[in-house]
Amino acid sequence: MHSRIDGVGIKCISVAVPSNKIAVKEIVSYKSEDEIKRAIRSTGISSLRLADQGVTTSDLCESAAVNIFTSSNHKREDICAIVFVTQTPDYFLPGTSCLLQSKLGFNEEVLCYDVNGGCCGYVYGLQLASMLSRLHGKDVLLLAGETNSKLICREDFSTAIMLADAGSATIVGEVNKETYMDFSIRNYGSKFDKLIIPAGAFRNPPDSLNEAVTERENGNKRSDRNTYMDGLAIMNFALTDVAELVKDTISREQDIDLFVFHQANKMIVNSVAAALKLPLDKVPIFVDGYGNTSSASIPLALCGTANDKPEGMTKYKKVLLAGFGVGLSCGTVVTDLKQTIFLPIKEV
């Protein structure tokens, strides 16, 4: 589905990551050195961030949001809605956005939305936030993040070497009259089981059987309440459906200065870029030291890239952001980040 929303853009982005940085070789110390080296060569992730036991996604997002209100001139009074995107909420109910409304000091008129989204969640969140901003004529606070560490089994090599934790906060609102956000989102629900936690909700309620960690494909171990990822199917999805969506977007939106993909891992980002024949200097990779942080990976890559470059992001007039993953879903948004403020990545 393609849609274009005029007059709104991204005003400010802040990201918070756990200060707990762990080497991949420590996480999967049960594997041989050669196997770990080979995996790191492919993923580009030699270390990543994992939240402490009591830290939730909302804590990381809250920290990122507080950073915006204390480090920029954005004010709470300008916000009409909170959109919280995650797969790791604080509770089954209530929605975590309600808790964040109170914790962040917003009044009761502020709208609260929870969106169950993963690696495409940032694009979904931007779309909802931009619609709400247009509807109410005010800014929207998009909070997107994940604490993947709570869902994975460390003995599942395929996920333990890359899935990590981070939270982000983004202010969406009117930047100038010329700014727009051009969205394309596609869903492939028939592939729902390629990236899934099979049990623990209501289709397969928690029981002692699905709690048990057992040996699976390639010697990986996990329970049915852990994240399962079919890496081969996800790579194929990226090379076919995701590449096709980005190709369609590029055919409509020319002269794109920067392509920021969901930072799944180095191999996926490079492979999609190669399939689309994109110049690699226009495709940042920002995974080492952070890992794959699901819906926080695009804002993390944006803040990391902006703060790594002396000129920031001002030279990037037109930027394409692309999310893809669980659903399976993929989405692109083309927008202008010339006036966006990117705060330094905060460790909490």
Partner: peptide
């Protein structure tokens, strides 16, 4: 010597490109 999921992923990336 090595033919696991990572090898298969590398293979489809190769055949695609």
């Amino acid at each position: 010597e090595v033919w696991d999921s990572l090898a298969m992923i590398t293979f489809i990336v190769y055949t695609n490109s």
